[in-house]
Each structure stands twice: as C-alpha cells, then as structure tokens.
Amino acid sequence: MTPGSKRRTMGQVSGENAVIEVAWLYYHEGLNQKEIADTLSISRATVVNYLQEARERELIRITLAAPAFTTHRLAHELCRRFGLKAAYVVPEEGAGLEQAFRRVVKGAALWLPDLLAPGDHLGLAWGRTVYDLAEALEVTAIEDLTVLQLVGSMATPYGFTAEACSTRLAQRLGARCLNLHAPAILSSASLSAALREEPILKRQLDEIEKVNKLLFSVGTVAGDSHIVSSGLATAGDLDFYIRSGAVGVICGRFVDKTGREIPGPMSERMIGIPLDHLVGLESGILVTPGHDKLEATLAAIRGGYVTHLVTGLTVAEALLEAEF
C-alpha cells in the first residue's frame, strides 16, 4: 500500500463502482496491481479482471499524442517531398493486411478531431475506410460543424449504406449532417441533369459546395475495386477508363496519374460534387491504409486534393521511393 492510502474493502466499493475505482487507482493514481489489491482487499486476479472489463466497456481511453506520429522522420519526409501540411505515420511493420488497415484507420480517427474547427464544412467520400474511421472515432463534439455527403447513394458490399458514413461521423462529432437524397449514378445523362434541377436536390448540391475540408480514401482500378463491387461502374466502364489512363478513383470519379478527372460514359450521369471543387481546399485529409492504393495516392497528391496524409510506415516508405 502506498503511504497515506487507506484500506478499503469491496464491501465499501462494489458493483460497477468497483471497476471504476480500480481503473482510477491504476491509470490516474499510478498504483500497480498489487497495491490496488492491497488497498481494496481483493486478489490481483480480480484487479486484472476489472481492468480488462474497463477496457472492454470502453471506460478507458489509452492513446498516444499525435506528435508521436506527426513528428516521425518519415512524416517530415512526406511533407517535404509532397508539399503536405502534415502527415501521420502509423507503425505497421509485420502486421497482416487487416491489422495494418485497422491501425491506419484508428490513427486517422485519433488525429481527425485535431484537424477540425468550429464552423467547418467537412466533406466525405464514402467507403469502408471512412465508415470504419467513423466507428473508431471517440465522441468529440465540435461546435457548428457540418458533415457533407459528397457523392450520392448506392448499394455497398460492406453491410452499410452510403449515408451511414456521413451520419455516423456526424453523430460522433456532434455535427449537423447533410446527405444527398439521390442515387450516385443515373441511367442517362438527361435524367441526371433533370434530377439535379429538382429544388430539394439542387439546394443540397449547392450546400455541399461550401466544403472547406475533405476526408477521403482513394479507390483503385482493380477488377474487384469498390467502384465496381458497389455497382457504380460496370466492368465495361472500368475497361474504358483504364484504357483512357485511369489509375485511381476519387469521390466516385476516375482520375489519371495527374489527378485530373477522365471524361467518359459516367461523367454526366453522376450525382455529386465536381472534382475541381475539391482542389486547393483548406484541408484534404487522405487516409491510405494499404500498398494497393499507392498509385492512386500519388495521383491525388499530384492533383492538389491532399494537404494531410495518414498512412502506415511501410506505405510511407514506398511512397517516398516512388517516382513523383
């Protein structure tokens, strides 16, 4: 027992309070497990169980401050080479694909609140990366924040709707949420043009052009990519854009290696923000969790969409070794 501490029994501290008491003594008062056991007259095994329960019930938040990742040597090199404002590099050497993905997403979720301010209009390009980021985000209320869905809706292969990304993120940040009440792509250009002129949707499209910060992950042009599996593009569309020089996808639109949108059969049928509205924003926060997105990430940087990058250590190394 530490000097001056008083022995308490579990008769005095019980139930849910016991879990909180043990967590407080361990994390805030710096007592070790034996000292807590002596203080509360319980076994060390019980202390271990209470600490595990506190973590499982998310009563405990354990994190490293952002400078641990943003002042990393590779973070500085990424900023210097690509002209970024900041980069956040997460350790993922030796991790499997899924573990590396989750580490990068968690890093982005930890850093995001630091990059937002009252009055911001944060636009989202939806997908699994952004959805999992929203799920990993700690509840952090930011005054007068608006979250914008930048691309219309469609089916997804991940078990959540497109609107769920923006809605979930807005809930976590205590923000106003504006979703687009229209499909991401229509069957014809004329139908898309007519729908964009509908008063309700026109107001929504005008609103999303207020975006000043962008949160996104790039898509690939692989045959199993999200843009095909979601039904946004057909295999024929994909072949056309690849032949036209596509290396990635940003907000549902195919881009070449310079980051410019490639005109094609989908362009006039889409409902969403034009890509040129996303160039040169106050912040463009790109989350790149895997090596499969290297080429698309470089295109996004070249195109002027990116000011902040979150990625893993080995991906950062590969980006720095790539021709730019």
Rank of each mutant, 00 (worst) to 15 (best):
L148E: 10
P183H: 08
V105H: 09
L145H: 13
E268L: 13
P113Y: 05
G231H: 11
T129L: 12
G11L: 05
S14T: 13
G159S: 07
L186H: 14
A66S: 13
E138T: 14
T9E: 02
I142K: 11
W126T: 14
L97E: 14
F69L: 06
S5R: 13
I250E: 02
L112Q: 10
Q33G: 05
V19L: 13
W111F: 14
R73K: 11
A75N: 04
A23T: 14
G119R: 02
K34F: 08
M1G: 00
L205A: 03
P199W: 00
W126M: 04
A45Y: 06
A194Y: 01
E135N: 05
L133F: 09
A86S: 13
Y305N: 07
Y50A: 02
A109T: 09
H121I: 00
T140E: 15
E56L: 11
T311Y: 01
V249L: 07
F69H: 10
T220S: 15
G290Y: 07
A162F: 02
E77M: 07
G245T: 03
G272A: 00
A189F: 01
L116H: 05
F324M: 09
A45L: 04
R269Y: 06
W111C: 06
I262C: 04
P3S: 09
L97A: 15
A86V: 02
I142W: 03
R302W: 12
V221A: 09
M270G: 03
G248Y: 07
S217D: 06
G119W: 07
K85S: 10
L110R: 15
S190Q: 12
V47M: 08
E323H: 10
W24I: 10
I262S: 02
T288Q: 04
P3C: 03
A95Q: 08
L115H: 01
L116I: 03
D237C: 11
L25D: 12
R203F: 01
R102C: 02
L97W: 06
V19T: 15
Q99L: 11
V247F: 04
H72I: 02
P91K: 01
G223T: 02
E209T: 04
D144L: 10
